[in-house]
Amino acid sequence: MATQASRAAGRLMISPAVILLFLWMIVPLGMTIWFSFLRYNLLIPGDNPFVGIENYQYFFTDPNFWPALWNTLTLVLGVLAITTIGGILLALLLDQPMFGQGIVRVLVIAPFFVMPTVSALVWKNMFMNPVNGLFAWIARTLGFAPFDFLSAAPLFSIILIVAWQWLPFATLILLTALQSLDSEQLEAAEMDGAGAVSRFFYIMLPHLARAATVVILIQTIFLLSVFAEILVTTNGGPGNASTNLTYLVYSQSLLQYDVGLGSAGGIVAVILANIVAIFLMRMIGKNLET
């Protein structure tokens, strides 16, 4: 609903954003795709011959690939399970009347604002360290041998750290969704004879389903590219026990200088993320209709 003149102005004003994003998306991605078909190592000077799908063959047959894929999925699913279930429970709790609700909220949300390198270092050294860490002290006090988290269960430890960072995110969004639930709906259900448990399963949970889906999809996008936590705590080790796809590509391209191979890995990561993205975009797109 507007005039020609304002429509022309609209096109003019949207173009910088569109052009910049288009370049940002198409140029590097195009280069990645191109590189992934070349034999291209920064340590080996000379031509970079076209080798077809050789890099992809190497990448898929790399002994680190399948563990990395497996680690990526374990990391994503582990964190999702903890944060979604924990988030729903926490949201239900925080929605109850209590003293100092504002402060409780503030405390719970705080970990989300901690930069990944800090949370990784703090957890690694001050909590999970087998000698001086707080967990080791608790174990010794209770009469157990201290557990060396990052050597014995590196992936599990990283899942814990990442889940701690994302639990507030899930809680905050689910709590917001919960508070948007019309209280008359709950009262109507109560008048209809539904008890607290039934009200949770028949009214609240369906209402939360949408927000929970959004939480899961958005977290998946971010969790597929967890990087700093791994770099700081384990460097992907021991061996490849905590290497995910992102870290694998990083080590191939910036540590081993194999541009071709790293690019092939990058494309694989893009494809994986896009599968999730399609679902997320459908959700958000539906919301745009209104």
């Binding site: 507007a2 304002s6 429509r7 102005a9 609209g10 949207i14 954003a17 569109v18 994003l21 940002w24 998306m25 140029v27 590097p28 991605l29 280069m31 990645t32 590189f35 996008i221 597929l224 590219s225 990087f227 796809l245 992102t246 590509v249 990083y250 391209s253 910036l254 541009v259 790293g262 690019s263 890995g265 990058g266 494309i267 990561a269 893009v270 994986l272 993320a273 896009n274 999730v276 993205a277 997320l280 975009m281 958000i284 797109g285 745009l288």
Partner: peptide
């Protein structure tokens, strides 16, 4: 304020650029 037929598509497309994992373009950007 001046939405056109393609506004929704542009919004969704912008969003999709955010979905691209950084590692996919690490090498060329570097």
């Amino acid at each position: 304020f001046v939405p056109g037929k393609r506004t929704k598509d542009i919004l969704m497309w912008m969003l999709s650029t955010k979905m691209m994992p950084a590692v996919g373009v690490l090498v060329p950007i570097y």
